[in-house]
Amino acid sequence: MKSTTVGLYPRPEYLQPAIRHFAKGRISAEQLEQEYRKAAKNYIELQEKAGIDYITSGGFSWDDVITPYAANTFGFKLGGLIRFFDNNNYYRKPSLTVGLIAREWKVADEMKKKAELKAIVPGPFTLAKMSEIAPFTTEEFVAIAGQVLNAEVKALYAAGCRNFQIDEPSLVFEKNIPDEEVDAASIAFAELRKGIDSQFCLQTYFGGAGEVYEKLLDFPADLIGLDFASVASGKENFDLVKEHGTGGKKLVAGVIDARNTKMETEADVKKAIEKIRSGMKDGAVILAPNAALEYLPEVIAEKKVKFLGEVARKL
């Protein structure tokens, strides 16, 4: 069985003071960059040693998956829009900083040996929900984001990336999303991957897919990532897969709990995978954590990465 990690990794303890020192002007941008590279290198080595098939860069310079991208590419400030442009201009200008993810991906890709490096790209709907988007409606913003992100995806493709994880936690975290908004998110997903012949995963976390699940299966994605490890979301997603399958999509099965220090046993994972497979008529299953490992203490995150590779090989 193949395995993958799905997001940011805890910053090593030496990196936390380095970032503070940089903010206070005590070290240079180059020095901080060196520290980031060291962290990425170590994390990539850890994943390759563990035998993970689709690895991630760890995103050590990112505070989270959404806001830095929102700030740098879309000109959002946390909690509000920076009005660099007037509203009409705004629509066309964001491509100024496209390539932010591609640059980081390229650096990490040169460090890896055999595994395939995924790129993690924030999804249009989640970007909309995590930002103050007025004067746009969610549907309008999501459409813009799809186009801007397509430019980012193209830059990644040009850098050599063929494997994309599009993070859309808000699709399952938010409740009672109007149908039109989910549809807009799906159209934006198509826009985002337009013209790019690669694997695209619709990655969810922080919730069960509930009433939007069937709509998610209609997204133009090759894979879908679901949480099976959280108590409530897990149960919900097991039932959904059992009832609806995965519509031919490959499943990134978040069986390893990224939000608890408790270590899973091999038997736990086996049982969960059997349960998932029994509900799927077709499509492969890729073993994964149910979210980024970034909210775990580093020692535990490391143990979970090793365990992930080890148990996937046995299955």
Binding site: R11, Q16, R20, D63, P297, I300
Partner: peptide, 20 residues
């Protein structure tokens, strides 16, 4: 048991205990 600091947000951390 404490396994080490975890991120609250940004570059801010706290010792999140585990009930083991």
């Amino acid at each position: 048991k404490m396994f080490g600091p975890v991120r609250v947000w940004g570059n801010n951390y706290y010792q999140k205990p585990s009930i083991i």
